[in-house]
Design a protein around this nucleic acid. Structure first.
Length: 580
RNA sequence: CGGGGUGUAGCGCAGCCUGGUAGCGCAUCUGGUUUGGGACUAGAGGGUCGUAGGUUCGAAUCCUAUCACCCCGACCA
């Protein structure tokens, strides 16, 4: 491609409404343009990247034995009504009527379409297992689209659905998809993690999210390198800290703490370490009108999702009102404690093993020190209540003496695989005959990849002050040829043209910057667009028989002998490919 | 959906408070000088001031309504 024949819509200035770096760079590099909130046009530079992503996804899905189909983006309401989702789905489902007044929806996902199709197509277990995928435009009417194509309303997704005779077969395909996703993200050249998204109720390996690691990610994830454990922070199990509970060695004592209502204030006031304090939180109980107490070490944070799973706690989690706190504890929040509290008390694992701790006295402006479970107040129910923090032990670890530690990072969810079971096959009556000739509901699996989101996620992970730095596998062009004096020097022109033709004939995607621009502009555009390899051809170096090469990631350029440049580039591309 | 904010040339913004018929930078087009990291110079084109009402002799500016977009939160996967 020659730049004179390519829509190179680069911007020097950053559009005002772009918040995160990938959105800014996609606009500046001329990859996308907004049409409406959360709805974008993909310009040539952007589409080339998206196609690269699609192709890798397609190749790996095919390799895994999945078959490509294409389902409609517009779907009749009847299918959604059959599954009960027409009512359930809510505002995210874009609904519309055709000219006859019939209801339709723009598909946010395709379970109901594929399931009703396969209910007809699959008759025998001999056709199973089967896995079908498509790469399609989806529409989810997000209340608040943001971050460009990262959280758009219309987006491109690869979704796959597998059908099975039994759970064992589903698990097998699930495992294949797990590996396929790993291969895909490796080939894309992205740093990622498979994150345990198991909510515990289904058990096993029922759900994994694949996250591209980036500071701007919307999800916090806990990662342990030693045990290959990664989980959404909200789901990550928090083990006990501090080992077994020491014996009580202090007498309980009352201290006046006027005006001290926060953990930080109490620690300061009493010169006590925060790890020796507990906080007592009152929330509404599952039983109507009841209040239950949740206890955490002073430095820990309540994980609301975990609390909701506690059988005594109302779901969704609701804080007790000030009045309820007053009547249950006899004081205002900030002075609640476990001694003499006539409520069910559940303590986090790391609060249970404390001895001689500090807590409120259930009397305003008074605290207790030297408090011990069992002696001064009843032993609490032990429960995992807290949010894991950086440096916690990994839940996979069996030995707390080892060096496994969780680190907390942020991720962008770009893939999600999960086992659906028979939820949709039941709703759509998708059965096949088993080897006894009996109809059996087909368990299903579902596997999504956010194709358009990957483009943005890749930029979040690969950029610098000058612009995008594409991984080779998804760059819009592999090589950019930047001539110095293309219009002035016949020599420069002919060397550039020749190299360009050679690269093209080798199937290498090269961009020849044949504009009559100053070098600074051409360099800036090439860097902004993130083209991984650049050759600069000018009379000065040609006179020395040299051509300059620079990798987008490299600090400086290097001189290559003119007659060796083609081999050099071929091996540079090959090296990048092997590194994938 | 709740709170906040913004709509003026392709992009970034000023002008609005204190009404007098629109301006700056970048980009674009033409000529000249330039050409190894976003040049210089001379000129040119481009705007229903989001939309609709109202107040006024006169509205980008004041008032009302409405639409769009953005941010924070809630929500969702």
């Amino acid at each position: 491609m020659r730049t004179t024949n390519f829509l190179l819509s680069t911007l020097k200035e950053t559009p005002a409404d772009a918040e995160i770096i990938s959105h800014q760079l996609m606009l500046r590099a001329g990859m996308i343009r907004k049409v409406a909130a959360g709805i974008y046009t993909w310009l040539p530079a952007g589409l080339r990247v998206m196609r690269k992503v699609e192709n890798i996804v397609r190749q790996e899905m095919d390799k895994a034995g999945a078959q490509e189909v294409l389902m409609p983006s517009v779907q009749p309401a009847e299918l959604w009504q059959q599954s009960g989702r027409w009512e359930m789905y809510g505002g995210e489902l874009l609904r519309m009527k055709d000219r006859h007044g019939r209801d339709f929806a723009y598909g946010p996902t395709h379970e109901v379409v594929i399931t009703s199709l396969m209910a007809n197509e699959i008759r025998s277990y001999k056709q199973l297992p089967a896995n079908f995928y498509q790469i399609q435009t989806k529409f989810r009417d997000e209340r608040r689209p943001r971050f460009g194509v990262m959280r758009a309303r219309e987006f491109i997704m690869k979704d796959a659905y597998s059908f099975h005779l039994d759970q064992a077969s589903l698990q097998e395909t699930y495992d294949v998809m797990y590996q396929t996703y790993t291969d895909i993200f490796n080939r894309l050249g992205l740093g990622f993690r498979a994150v345990d998204a198991d909510n515990g109720s289904i058990g096993g390996n029922a759900s994994h999210e694949f996250h591209v690691l980036a500071d701007s990610g919307e999800d916090a994830i806990a990662v342990c390198d030693k045990y290959q454990y990664a989980a959404n922070v909200e789901l990550a199990e928090a083990l006990q800290l501090g080992g077994a509970r020491p014996a009580a060695s202090q007498e309980m004592d009352r201290v006046d703490t006027p005006g001290q209502h926060t953990i930080a204030a109490i620690c300061e006031f009493l010169s006590a370490p925060i790890e020796s304090t507990i906080k007592t939180l009152l929330v509404k109980g599952e039983e109507q009108g009841s209040v239950v107490a949740l206890v955490l070490r002073g430095d820990h944070e309540l994980n609301e999702l975990k609390a909701e799973k506690h059988p005594l706690v109302a779901s969704p989690l609701t804080w007790a009102s000030d009045e309820e706190v007053q009547s249950a504890a006899g004081c205002a929040p900030g002075s609640i404690g476990t001694v003499g509290l006539h409520l069910s008390v559940t303590a986090d694992r790391s609060a249970v093993n404390l001895a001689n701790f500090i807590c409120g006295a259930n009397q305003d402006d008074v605290h207790l020190t030297g408090v011990n479970w069992g002696r001064d107040c009843p032993e609490p129910i032990e429960f995992d209540l807290r949010v894991v923090v950086d440096g916690d032990f990994c839940a996979r670890s069996t030995d707390q003496q080892d060096d496994s530690r969780l680190s907390i990072g942020r991720g962008i969810e770009v893939g999600h695989i999960f086992q659906l079971g028979t939820k949709y096959s039941e709703a759509m009556n998708a059965t096949c005959l088993d080897n006894n000739g009996k109809a059996a509901l087909m368990p299903m699996g579902c596997y999504g990849i956010g194709v358009s989101r990957i483009v943005a996620a890749a930029i979040e992970q690969n950029n610098d002050a000058r612009g995008i730095i594409w991984p080779d596998a998804i760059a819009p062009f592999q090589i950019v040829i930047t001539p110095i004096g293309y219009k002035k020097s016949d020599k420069v022109k002919s060397v550039c043209d020749q190299l360009y033709q050679q690269l093209i004939s080798l199937g290498i995607e090269a961009l020849l910057d044949d504009r009559n621009e100053r070098p600074g502009i051409m360099f800036a555009d090439a860097d902004l667009m993130g083209i991984p390899h650049r050759v600069v051809i000018g009379e000065k170096s040609l006179d020395k028989g040299q051509i300059e090469y620079k990798n987008r990631r490299a600090e400086a350029a290097e001189d290559i002998a003119q007659d060796a440049i083609l081999d050099f580039l071929k091996s540079a591309l090959l090296k990048a490919k092997i590194a994938e």
